[in-house]
Amino acid sequence: MRLGYLIGLAILLSALWLAFSGLYKPRMLFFGLSSIIICLVLVSRLRLLDREAAPYFRLPVYLSYWVWLMIEILKANWIVIRACLRAELDIQPALVKVATTCRTDLAKTVFANSITLTPGTVTLEVEGDWMLVHGLYEDQTQPEDFIEMDRRSAEAADGRKRETEVAG
């Protein structure tokens, strides 16, 4: 399993180097190859490679979650833009405690970052299974509004239970 992560990281680094460089002379390719090898040696010696650092096997799930999140962000953007441009300031900030069903740190990070990325809601604090969320409008940041995002981010990052146990 660890070798799989290493190979995935090598492929990703090579693709990034080829996509960013744009110079395909032999000397530059040699420099790129040596820097990739140095990176791989450092990463494997630091023991950074685990499921969180190399989530390549779950990319399609993340992509579908990303698409759903973009639509949510568009909808939320419209509300905040209207609040910014209204002639008379009319907002109703609120602090809400939101429960999460995510178990791993990665899923919690994805969920909290999704909340923060959506305009109108910011995660202030993460403690255990609770998150303190600051919202721009009180009636739109009730704990029920986060249930679907919580479920989807838990699905995207945690997935089935088997994978967590294999990687852990």
Partner: peptide
Amino acid sequence: IIGTVGVLRFPDFYTRLHAASVTDTS
């Protein structure tokens, strides 16, 4: 510009964060 106007208008730090995230996303 809209996000910056929101940052200038909103009353406290936490609400300004929301306006700044308009710039960050859309």
